Computed example of a mutant assay.
Amino acid sequence: MAESMIERVARVLAERRGNKAVWEEDIATARAAIEAMRIPASAMTAAGIKRQVAWDYGEGRGVDEYPHTSEQAVYTAMIDAALEDKP
């Protein structure tokens, strides 16, 4: 069974604490972290719009490469912007 995004985040949190065997203890924290990203920062929104326009003009459409859809491309661009930690 594929892991959910909450499980993925919980596993990373547990690994960062040095105890990846008990990732279930981090589910509530993982859920809270994802909920905190529900409303994107302005940099995330700008990155998503920029990536969608680029996709619409044919950029980044490698058949065998991720992202495979415009939704994946926009999502990835927005998360990348969040990881840059700019307001």
Rank of each mutant, 00 (worst) to 15 (best):
E7Q: 03
D85Y: 08
R31F: 05
E25W: 03
D80T: 06
P87D: 15
Y57K: 14
R51T: 09
S42Q: 13
A43L: 04
E71H: 04
E35C: 05
G48T: 07
Y75A: 06
G58L: 10
L83C: 11
S70M: 10
K20Q: 10
E25H: 04
G58Q: 13
R51E: 14
D56Y: 02
T69F: 08
W23D: 00
V74D: 08
A32T: 06
A21K: 09
E71Q: 07
T29R: 12
R38Y: 10
I49F: 03
V22H: 06
V22T: 14
G58I: 11
E65C: 13
D85Q: 15
L13C: 08
Y57H: 14
E35W: 02
L13A: 10
E35N: 07
V53D: 11
A54P: 10
I6K: 13
R8K: 12
A21D: 09
L83I: 06
A21I: 01
D80S: 13
M5I: 02
M1S: 00
E35A: 09
E24R: 07
Y75V: 10
V74S: 05
A54H: 04
R17Y: 03
Q52M: 15
R38M: 13
R11N: 02
L13G: 07
S42V: 10
E84N: 01
P87Q: 14
I6R: 11
A77M: 05
A82F: 07
E25M: 05
V9G: 01
R51K: 15
P67H: 01
R38L: 11
E15A: 15
T45Y: 06
M5G: 08
T29D: 12
D85K: 15
R51S: 10
M37H: 06
V22R: 07
R61T: 15
A46R: 06
K20A: 10
K50T: 07
E59D: 11
A33K: 15
A81F: 01
A2F: 01
A43Y: 05
G62F: 03
G48Q: 14
Y66K: 13
E71T: 11
A14S: 07
W23C: 00
I27K: 04
G62R: 14
I39R: 12
V63F: 09
P87E: 15
T76P: 10
A14Y: 00
P40K: 01
G18C: 01
D56I: 02
K20I: 05
M37G: 10
P87T: 14
M37P: 07
A81L: 04
W55I: 06
T45H: 10
R31Q: 13
A14T: 03
K20N: 09
I6G: 01
A30G: 04
A21V: 05
R16T: 04
